[in-house]
Design a protein around this nucleic acid. Structure first.
Length: 760
DNA sequence: CTAGGGTTAG
């Protein structure tokens, strides 16, 4: 006999039971469930005391209390109604009744009860019932596994699977589908392949549910080709199969192919449902294709799905992600009974708009609107859930809105959502982004479970605050706990090394990333390393490094080298790097500013004109230099030299400038790209730069001990950086400025960036 | 007991 596939999950290795030749399909028990259970219909009828009664109108609790005898066959539909109502308390009453009447001897009812507890999200109870089952059938194993998969403990699902095989029970096609789903959540293609081998061996690859699960496994592991293969092998494809393959295309960036599958469905008259439509919509959202999205929307109206709330929510989200606030708003206002998901979609949609907005000003506006919607939601009496909180915390972190973030934190504590990993991670990230590394690490330590994202967020937080050693210690801890780092984790690790100038360590980790974890370097990794060499003045090494990478260096990589060359006065290399940069036709106005500064200061007028004409060609507009500060629930914005704020503020700023000058600060001019006719004003004053205005405003409008948090759309200039350093000690205030490249935390004349992280 | 609107790290 050929050797059997081996399942290995960290702690155990087990051989599958030898098969008897034919795969045992559904057990008797599964058949029984299908016969008695119902599609999730709203009118379940049952027989009570000989009369056929619709369960929904039946106050079964009353019946139970009055001591009515319930036939064993009635428990399942009653329990099903509890799932539908999501009422754990009623489940418990029924459970007690089941015990009282001795029905707990019935393996079928008790197996169903495991499912009920799973559906109510109470795994402890589900386990308890499972452990006391009079006889464990394959359906019970499967149900328990499903519970673990749905409650984000896929490793336990695999453990249960192995336990099941040990007792000699055979998996059904549904069990295998669930195991595949566990592999999918663990993103373990290795284990998935082993299960796939088993499936091929028993010739059930063409089974609908197995095929569907295989399709989503491969899709989640990034292999669209295998996903489509799995889909094609399904003998009887159902709506789920089609929807899954469409999702697979969307998740893997092949939206066009996904649309083709949908068109095929339409032309072949294959049944589709609301889920198919929402998948299509979310595909349009991720590829930001408003044009296709609008067509799908009209199709939805034509097909009469317009009033469907799920679909409405998806359409709203689509419009928001594509920046059509007006359309989204129209839909929102036109919806009579909005659900929590509607609110969540609108908030998450605005959060997304921050990322995809055309400029920083509208990005900021979206963020402020998201917070506004959140407060309306709170006043409406509806209770926010973990999705709401995660989105809102993201918004706070992007707006550097510490006060709102703290309020949300308090609300999360009260409502008990802190135990959720995603919410906990979002909280850690919020404190990191708002400059409070202390509270971030406190929140991180207090988490009961951590995902890769939690670790990565905290490591990056330490790195961004200049706490390199702590970042690296945390990374080592993460490895000890057995969490596998990814590309993004290494960005944090390398940036920690870079900030501390730890060349040896950086190169070691860079090596480890590629050799031990088979992660290919991306521009972000290289940027960290280039920054490190540049910081140490080792410009030639930086160049060597750029030449050694396998991909074409991007705009950021070259511009960091140009910047470094300017700082260290190596103009020859600077000109070379600038040539490479110009070949890429950069899009960032700040890059042009830097190049102009370089050519102006060396009086290379021809190059100045070359850069200027390239700017025209590339339609580079003037730099949008804005700063913001959130105070209480309001966001205040500042433009350089604006005179829109109170006279007190300008007075305070002038006083601070005086004080700073007495302590050795010397104001310096800086290059700017401003003015209506887009002419280059060579050097202009930095006195009223937007961040200075925002800081002064913050001093005036917050209590003395409070930190001042400013967010800035461009990179901070050297002058403002010096100024804020000085006044942090003059005023004894902590000042945090998050600019377009990094976070600066000024305390007592020191900045967390180590004074190397700013521009001209 | 299998897909299924809204959530976290760069």
């Amino acid at each position: 006999m050929a050797s059997l596939p081996t399942f290995s999950v960290n702690y155990c290795t087990l051989q599958l039971q030898p098969h008897s030749g034919k795969h045992p399909n559904c057990s008797l028990l599964t058949q029984k469930i299908t016969n008695i259970s119902y599609k999730r219909s709203h009118t379940i009828t049952t027989h009570l005391n000989g009369n056929s009664v619709p369960v929904k109108s039946l106050d079964f609790l009353q019946a139970v209390k009055e001591g009515t005898k319930i036939e064993t066959s009635c428990y399942v539909p009653l329990l099903q109604e509890c799932i539908h109502r999501n009422s754990l308390s009623e489940v418990q009453i029924l459970h007690a009744h089941i015990i009282k009447t001795g029905t707990h001897q019935d393996p079928f009812v008790m197996t169903f009860l495991v499912n009920v507890y799973v559906k109510c999200g109470t795994m402890e109870e589900a386990e308890r019932v499972f452990n006391n089952l009079p006889r464990i059938y394959v359906a019970a194993w499967t149900t328990l596994m499903t519970g673990y998969v749905q409650n984000s403990q896929p490793e336990l699902a695999i453990r249960v699977f192995l336990d099941m095989l040990e007792t000699g029970d055979y998996p059904t096609h549904i069990t295998l589908g669930t195991v595949l789903n566990a592999c999918t959540s663990m993103k373990s293609i290795k284990l998935g392949n082993q299960i796939h081998a088993y499936i091929v061996k028993y010739c059930i690859e063409d089974d609908t549910s197995v095929g569907n699960s295989l399709c989503s496994l491969y899709s989640n592991c990034g292999s669209l080709v295998s996903a489509i293969k799995a889909f094609r092998r399904i003998r009887e494809k159902n709506v789920i199969s089609w929807t899954t393959v469409i999702c697979a295309c969307g998740e893997n960036g092949e939206a066009f192919q996904g649309l083709n599958f949908f068109v095929q469905m339409l032309s072949e008259d294959i049944e589709f449902n609301e889920f198919t439509l929402t998948s299509i919509l979310s595909m349009c959202s991720t590829m930001l294709s408003l044009c296709v999205g609008e067509q799908v929307h009209s199709l939805i109206i034509k097909l009469g799905y317009e009033s469907n709330l799920r679909i409405r929510n998806s359409v709203m989200y689509l419009y928001l992600r594509c920046g059509s606030v007006y359309e989204a708003r129209k839909l929102f206002d036109g919806t009579q009974h909005v659900s929590l998901v509607t609110w969540n979609s609108v908030i998450a949609g605005h959060a997304q708009m921050i990322e995809f907005a055309k400029d920083d000003l509208s990005a900021h506006h979206s963020g402020a609107e998201a917070l506004n919607i959140f407060s309306i939601l709170n006043r409406s009496g509806m209770k926010p859930d973990l999705y709401t909180f995660s989105s809102v915390l993201t918004v706070c972190s992007k707006l550097v809105a510490l006060q709102q973030g703290e309020q949300v934190h308090a609300q999360i504590l009260k409502t008990g959502f802190l135990s959720d990993v995603v919410v906990g991670t979002a909280l850690v990230n919020m404190y990191n982004k708002c400059g409070s590394i202390e509270r971030a690490s406190k929140a991180f330590v207090e988490m009961s479970t951590r995902t890769l994202i939690s670790w990565t967020s905290m490591i990056t937080g330490f790195a961004n605050h200049g706490h390199s050693q702590q970042a690296l210690h945390l990374f080592e801890d993460m490895l000890l706990v057995g969490v596998r780092p990814n590309q993004i984790t290494f960005v944090g690790v390398l940036s920690a090394c870079s900030n501390a100038g730890m060349v040896h360590e950086a190169l070691n980790y860079f090596d480890m990333m590629q050799k031990d974890y088979k992660i290919r370097p991306v521009p972000d990794h290289i940027v960290c390393l280039i920054d490190m060499f540049v910081r140490l003045g080792r410009l030639e090494e930086a160049l060597d490094f750029i030449k050694r990478i396998e991909f074409k260096p991007n705009e950021v990589i070259w511009s960091r080298l140009v910047e470094g060359c300017m700082r260290h006065g190596n103009m020859e290399l600077g000109f070379y790097a600038a040539e490479q940069l110009l070949k890429l036709k950069p899009k960032n106005p700040e890059t042009y500013l830097m190049l102009l500064d370089m050519y102006l200061s060396t009086r290379r007028w021809e190059d100045v004109f070359r850069v200027k004409s390239l700017m025209e060609e590339e339609k580079i507009s003037k730099i949008q230099d804005w700063s913001w500060i959130s105070i209480k629930d309001k966001v205040h914005s500042f433009k350089p030299n604006d005179r829109l704020h109170s006279a007190d503020m300008y007075k305070l700023l002038d006083e601070l400038l005086d004080k700073a000058e007495n302590l050795g600060y010397k104001s310096r001019e800086c290059l700017e790209l401003i003015d209506e006719d887009d002419e280059i004003k060579t050097f202009s004053s930095t006195v009223y730069h937007s961040e200075k205005l925002a800081v002064a405003f913050g001093m005036l409008n917050t209590v003395n001990a409070a930190p001042i948090l400013v967010i800035k759309s461009t990179t901070m200039c050297r002058d403002c950086h010096n100024f804020i350093k000085v006044i942090s000690s003059v005023t004894g205030r902590e000042i945090i400025v998050r600019d377009s490249t990094r976070l600066h935390r000024f305390v007592d004349r020191q900045c967390s960036c180590g004074d190397d992280g700013f521009g001209l």
